[in-house]
């Protein structure tokens, strides 16, 4: 459509519509920027702090005057290397194992809940809800006593097992919601079309279920990665201490000097995986967190 065929009124109307659209667009960008600043500001703040030297920490400014990577050197190749890298390794290993176990067990459990009729189904769901609401602090003392008597104190399994109590309920609820939305009739349809049950399951159901399982894994990983209470209570050496607990072990050049810089650098490093996962899988995570259909 070219302009010269329009009456002046029509042209004016179209210009106004275009301007209105542009204004909405500008408005949305403003809102987006406000939200982004709100969400990213503390991360930016600790990022800036991580590049300050000990002398600059009290300069009262957001940015360092002379950015220095000395804090990163301290934790990656310097004195705190052993402390931080072993904690990072523990955190990664323990969180991934706890996530995998939780997702496998929760997949079986959620499949049963979504597809089968069995007595006690309601109990399984209620119990997992109770578990997810449980105050973790109430568990640490008895677990500490039990763990040390059976040799699980300060070991990977000693953290993986309690992490399951954090990750399983969420995984079960999220997956049950996902599985209830899968059109299971397709499986029967495929079998009618001549596929074996296994083929039908693999070709039809697995592709439908996989995104849900994957999303659940990311959410479960976040939860295990976030743990602090179990980390400080059930470990005592580099053998199993995860990163959030290890941050309390950093020190400055002497025991009295604040380890602000080293903690900030370590904080940034453990935030990188979170930011990467969020950037790559934003759609899946939002879908997972909003999946449990809310009906009133």
């Amino acid at each position: 459509m070219s302009t010269e065929t329009l009456t002046p009124e029509e042209a004016e109307g179209q210009r106004r519509a275009r301007r209105a659209k542009r204004n909405t667009s500008i408005g949305w960008w403003v809102i987006t920027i406000v939200v982004a600043v709100w969400c990213l500001f503390p991360v930016a703040s600790i990022l800036a702090t991580s590049f300050k030297t000990p002398g600059e920490l009290s300069n009262g400014k957001f940015l360092p005057d002379n950015p220095s990577t000395s804090n990163y050197e301290e934790i990656l190749v310097g004195d705190s290397q052993e402390l931080f890298l072993s904690a990072l390794w523990n955190s990664i290993g323990i969180s991934i194992i706890a996530t995998l176990i939780a997702v496998v067990l929760a997949t079986l459990c959620a499949y049963a809940i979504a597809r089968l009729d069995f007595p006690g189904k309601k109990i399984v769901l209620t119990v997992s809800l109770m578990v997810s609401m449980f105050p973790v602090i109430s568990l640490v003392t008895p677990l500490f006593n039990l763990w040390r008597s059976i040799g699980l104190y300060d070991t990977w399994p000693g953290l993986i097992i309690p992490y399951l109590s954090l990750t399983l309920p969420i995984a079960i609820w999220t997956l049950a919601a996902f599985f209830q939305q899968i059109p299971w009739e397709l499986e029967q349809a495929a079998q009618v079309d001549g596929a074996t049950p296994l083929q039908a399951f693999r070709k039809v159901i697995v592709p439908l279920a996989a995104p849900g399982v994957f999303t659940t894994a990311i959410i479960a990983f976040f939860i295990a990665w976030n743990d602090f209470v179990y980390g400080i209570s059930l470990t005592s050496t580099e053998a199993a201490r995860p990163v959030p607990a290890a941050l309390a072990f950093f020190t400055g050049a002497s025991q009295f000097e604040s380890p602000t810089g080293a903690i900030s650098a370590a904080a940034i490093i453990v935030t990188i995986p979170v930011v990467l996962l969020v950037m790559l899988f934003q759609k899946q995570i939002v879908a997972g967190l909003t999946s449990g259909a809310v009906k009133g």
Partner: peptide, 19 residues
């Protein structure tokens, strides 16, 4: 009133130019 760590720490800051 403070422990002796303040001496090396203050000297280090003076070298860095922070004080």
């Amino acid at each position: 009133v403070n422990w002796p760590f303040v001496w090396p720490a203050t000297n280090a800051s003076a070298e860095d130019g922070a004080v």
